[in-house]
């Protein structure tokens, strides 16, 4: 076998290991998926009526009046991206937990593709994140969300979600590797959960004070959410948002990868 074949084989072995962990220890997956579902219901049924009225006519194209219905259409993309941010909380914990186990030292004395220890986590988390987004989207449809995406739009949506997840997962793999303890690893990615709120996830950034709006418009979650929103609404995706989404995702992945690799080899 070639080096590439070995790398792929080891990665799939490590992925199978992660999937087994997920099945054996389902409570983490449940929390990760349950949290955004609670957010969704909370924002639709508790805040939705009021927030929807405040959206203004052009915030969501095609919905003339405000109200709960308009807010479901507005908030669902935000919740979906929040779902990814929630899923990657588990990544950092999983990686940090793994590093405290002797088994990783065993892997390091074996002739395996070393990166597979990390890529196993990445692919496992990716599956977990996509699963989470699917469940949350299904719940959103159940409570009245009506996506308008074309077939191509769905494909684009899948790609966008996967790309964003890829960036955030590698970032949190890096956080998990850099953390001195599992405890730390469960805290460092927390701010990611806050970012959709400080962006266009729950209200349009136009409604924020200028200084906050400045931050909101330039942080990565705003383009993530905007692209997701356009795709779900069946609208054309803004070129700048798309470029920012791709750029941010790859940059975050690269940073996380670099940190993780360095830490893995140094340990």
């Amino acid at each position: 076998m070639s080096t590439l074949a070995y790398t792929l084989s080891d990665t799939s072995t490590m992925l199978r290991r992660q999937l087994k962990h997920m099945i054996r220890y389902p409570s983490l997956t449940a929390i990760i998926i349950g949290m955004p579902v609670v957010f969704l219901l909370l924002f639709v049924y508790v805040f939705g009526g009021t927030l929807g009225n405040g959206l203004g006519g052009d915030a969501v194209a095609g919905t003339a009046a405000g109200g709960r219905e308009a807010y479901i259409a507005y908030v669902t993309p935000g919740i979906l991206v929040t779902t990814i941010a929630a899923a990657v909380q588990g990544t950092a914990i999983g990686v940090a937990m793994d590093m405290t186990e002797g088994i990783v030292d065993r892997f390091r004395t074996m002739s395996i593709a070393r990166v597979s220890v990390l890529t196993g986590h990445v692919l496992g988390s990716l599956i977990q994140a996509l699963l989470g987004v699917t469940v949350v989207l299904a719940v959103a449809v159940l409570v009245g969300f009506r996506p308008e995406a074309s077939a191509l739009g769905w494909l684009g949506l899948f790609g966008t979600i996967a790309l964003i997840a890829f960036g955030l997962i590698w970032l949190t793999v890096g956080m998990g590797m850099a953390a001195k303890s599992v405890e730390t690893a469960s805290n460092t990615p927390m701010p990611l959960l806050l970012l959709p709120f400080l962006g266009s996830g729950f209200v349009p950034t136009e409604s924020m004070p200028t200084w906050l709006r400045y931050f909101a418009d330039y942080q990565p979650f705003t383009p993530f959410i905007e692209v997701t929103r356009s795709l779900l609404a069946g609208e054309a995706v803004g070129g700048e948002d798309l470029a920012l989404t791709v750029g941010w995702s790859l940059a975050l992945a690269l940073i996380g990868y670099a940190v993780a690799k360095r830490k893995f080899n140094k340990r």
Binding site: T13, R17, H21, R24, E101
Partner: peptide
């Protein structure tokens, strides 16, 4: 240095896969 969440047999299978 064992995987605490896999069974004994799965731990050995894991090693077998990693040794190709």
């Amino acid at each position: 240095a064992v995987d605490g969440l896999l069974t004994g047999r799965e731990n050995l299978h894991l090693m077998g896969s990693l040794h190709h």
